[in-house]
């Protein structure tokens, strides 16, 4: 089913999305891939070691902790993170080629970010059960964008700006404005997985 959604991606929105839905996203999405996730995790480790007992308990309950919210380079609450590293922009374009990268490399970091409020991941490829469990726990969704369609997806991006980690080059964190950015719900907030069901439908051996 074709659906059109706007960011922020709230639990209200994700509850209405089902594996197999073709979704067009408009609004703000953030870009982060391997090296940026590693830095985010290291930063969170550092902040968390400095938390008081009370703050630790708040975090355990899944409630926001100011020290963490303040330290994050962008708000994670209801955010969509696009696993992507673009090619450089030519003059007059906001961004270069901009297709998804393999999401499984972010599996180690994703549950923690989902627990901090992130609601959508955009990438391609399989995820671990730990990620799916965190998605169900937090009403989050996993979208796939078409891998290798970087020129087409680039045309749906109207603005791009650096958020942080500029020294990482193609792996820096970016804030994008997108219009009707095409994705497919692969794993929904109930854990239904299109990769598993669709392949079974066409498998002949």
């Amino acid at each position: 089913m074709d659906k059109h959604i706007s960011t922020p991606i709230t639990a209200e929105i994700t509850k209405g999305l089902h594996a197999g839905d073709y979704v067009y996203i408009s609004g703000t999405i953030y870009v982060a891939r391997d090296a940026a996730h590693k830095r985010l995790a290291e930063m969170l480790d550092e902040v968390e070691t400095a938390l008081t007992q009370e703050e630790r308990e708040t975090l355990k309950r899944g409630e926001p902790v100011k020290k963490i919210t303040d330290a994050l380079p962008f708000p994670l609450e209801n955010a969509a993170i696009y696993y992507m590293g673009p090619s450089p922009a030519r003059a007059g374009r906001p961004i270069g080629s901009a297709g998804p990268t393999t999401a499984s490399r972010m599996d180690r970091y994703a549950p923690r970010l989902l627990d901090l409020g992130q609601k959508a991941m955009i990438g391609k490829g399989k995820r671990t059960q730990e990620v799916v469990d965190a998605m169900i726990r937090n009403h989050a969704v996993y979208f796939a964008a078409v891998g290798g369609a970087g020129a087409l997806l680039s045309k749906c991006i109207t603005h791009s700006e650096l958020v942080c980690y500029g020294d990482l080059g193609a792996e820096a964190v970016l804030k994008l404005q997108v219009e009707e950015f095409p994705v497919i719900v692969v794993i929904d907030s109930e854990g239904n997985n299109l990769y598993e069901t669709a392949i079974q439908e066409y498998a002949q051996i």
Partner: peptide, 28 residues
């Protein structure tokens, strides 16, 4: 597959944009 066909169509569209506007076919 209907969805599969839709994706193959997108790949054609992607190739056309890449060649006409000099945006790499894939960012990688």
């Amino acid at each position: 597959s209907v969805l599969g066909k839709k994706i193959l169509n997108q790949l054609q569209e992607n190739l056309a944009i890449a060649g006409q506007e000099m945006i790499p076919i894939c960012q990688d």
